[in-house]
């Protein structure tokens, strides 16, 4: 049981974070809080990817020829998820940028960032 928890706790963490982000996106009324929920959602997936790249006893994935005569993959952590997540972080930053710009436009039009008030105005 403890082995299971210690072996898979990274998945548990990312599931909890995704649900927190999802709750923020769906249940909160303020558009800014929805945006923060979306951010948490994206960042939890990035954490998940990075966590699967780690290895027990692995070191930084920079080849050091003085250490070993031959390169053994088991000594280095997997660099591919890190590289993929660099791109995903950029995507997350771009999403936040566009969302904030849209929020400024919405605030300028409606004067509020609460979703129910905006929907009230739209219904009329």
């Amino acid at each position: 049981m403890m082995e299971f928890i210690f072996g898979t706790f990274n998945y548990g963490i990312y599931v909890v974070l995704i649900l927190i982000g999802f709750y923020g996106m769906m249940a909160k009324n303020n558009l800014m809080k929805k945006l923060i929920g979306m951010n948490i959602f994206q960042w939890s997936i990035i954490l998940f990817y990075i966590s699967i790249g780690s290895k027990k006893g692995g070191t930084v994935p920079v080849v050091d020829p003085s250490l070993h005569p031959a390169i053994r993959a088991v000594d280095y952590i997997n660099p591919l998820p890190h590289v993929l997540m660099l791109t995903a972080i950029v995507v997350g930053v771009a999403t936040t940028g566009i969302a904030l710009a849209l929020l400024i436009l919405i605030y300028r039009t409606y004067g509020t960032l609460e979703e129910d008030e905006i929907l009230e105005v739209l219904k009329k």
């Binding site: 996106m25 558009l31 929805k34 945006l35 979306m38 999403t95 566009i98 969302a99 849209l102 929020l103 436009l105 919405i106 039009t109 409606y110 905006i118 739209l122």
Partner: peptide, 11 residues
């Protein structure tokens, strides 16, 4: 309401 629709689309 286009920015609002775009924001919901974004979420």
């Amino acid at each position: 309401a286009a920015p609002f629709a775009a924001f919901r689309y974004m979420i």
